[in-house]
Each structure stands twice: as structure tokens, then as C-alpha cells.
Simulated scan of single mutants.
Amino acid sequence: MPHGGRPLLAGYFVAVPEALRGPGLPRVARLTTASDCLIDRVPQDDCWFATAQEALAACAPVRVPARARLYALLVPAGHATDLVADIRAAATYEPVLLANLDGPGSRAPAREVVEGGHGIGWEVLGYDHGLMHSWLCNDLYRGAVLGLGVDTDERGLLPDQDTAERVAAWANGLGDTKPVTWFPAALIEWDTPIESRFAPVATDPPPPRTPWWHRLVPSHSPHEAERPPAR
């Protein structure tokens, strides 16, 4: 088994898969990620829930896009300590993540919390002052493809834990990425529409979401993903 060990539940969230394209990025029609940078959360960004029931209840009173789905993020036990350390160092308010990964009763195997869901793949994330950043929005994809021989699927996800461990270790060794500890994480999806009191928002796929770095540079086109600014 890879050194990360068994996956632990980090939290639940509801998100809307979106298209991704741009220089140095994979071209995918349904990017799926726990990162706040690349897809929208429901009811708002940076929403983590302790249970699936809490996540679904929070979505009921808001307009939910038809593509929105419920997800669980799982973090290998060997990486949970580093993630918790980054959260505590940032002094941000993360009651769900801290309770699941470092609170009383934490460290329970995740298999009990994913009933009805199915694993869709792995990604590489890093926590930075309230945001989950993805390796895909940090100019790492092309280097990993060329240097490690890895690639993503039609959702922008890696195939297994071993591959995600390799990418995370490689990214942490570069020393010129965001000041985060990159870690592998698995996504579980419940492939059923989210119930809402309102009619679903239009189902036509939207243009790719403006990456986080474009929010700092208004002159960029919102439909063109580019390399983030120099760090």
C-alpha cells in the first residue's frame, strides 16, 4: 500500500463540474475537484459539511444547477497530519476538516461514510489560508506529464492513489510552487441530482470558469485559462 495509508473522511461538499482548457492544462469537459479555484461550490465556495445530510439540507433552499452533485473528499491517513498542520498554521476557521481529521473520534476509516457513492479518481491538493488549491491551477500539469509520465482522465483526475502520491511528492520537491504541502486525495461522487425547492438552473454547459488568478487581473478574458502570475 502507498505510504499514505487508508483514506480518512475530510468532509462533504456540493459542486458543479465545469469545463477546463488552456495552455499547459488538460482539456476536460467535466472537471471535478475539491479545489475552490476551478469549480463552483453550492451553496457557496469553501463550504464543507460534516455529513451528507447536512450538505443536502444546505442546498435545499437555494437554486442548484442541474449538474451539481454531492462529493466526499478522502485524505490518506499519512497525509492528514500535514493538512491539519497547514490549517492550524493558517489560523482559519475549518471546524469540519479539523473535526474529521484531528478531532475526538477522528481517524475512522472512510468506508463507513461513502455508502451509495462511488470513487471517481484522485487529485493533488494544497491548503492555503482557507482555500484548497489544485495542482492543475499551479502550472504543474505539464511538468508532471513530461517528468512523471502521468496524465488525467476526462474529469481531470488521476487514476489511483499511487499516482497521486507520486505527483504530490514531486510537487513538494520542486520548491517553487505555492507555499503549501501538496497531498493526494480521493473523490467520492453520488451521481444523483441535488434536490432543491427551486427549478434547476439551466443545464447547458457553461464556458470554463475563470481561474482564481484571473480574479486579480481583470484584463484577462474570462474564457481563456492562462498561466498564473509569477510567484
Rank of each mutant, 00 (worst) to 15 (best):
G119E: 15
G119M: 11
G121S: 13
W122K: 12
W122C: 11
W122Y: 15
W122S: 03
E123M: 11
E123V: 03
E123S: 14
E123R: 07
E123K: 08
L125Y: 14
L125W: 06
L125N: 10
G126K: 03
Y127K: 02
Y127S: 04
Y127C: 05
D128C: 08
D128M: 10
D128S: 09
D128G: 00
H129Y: 10
H129V: 13
H129G: 01
G130E: 09
G130K: 10
M132H: 08
H133M: 02
S134W: 01
W135R: 07
C137A: 15
C137M: 07
C137V: 05
N138E: 15
N138P: 00
D139C: 02
D139Y: 01
D139K: 03
D139N: 14
L140P: 01
Y141W: 14
Y141M: 03
Y141E: 02
Y141P: 00
R142S: 14
G143C: 01
G143A: 10
G143H: 03
A144F: 02
V145R: 14
L146Y: 08
G147V: 03
L148T: 09
L148Q: 13
G149E: 06
G149I: 05
G149K: 09
V150Y: 01
V150M: 08
D151H: 11
D151Q: 05
D151P: 00
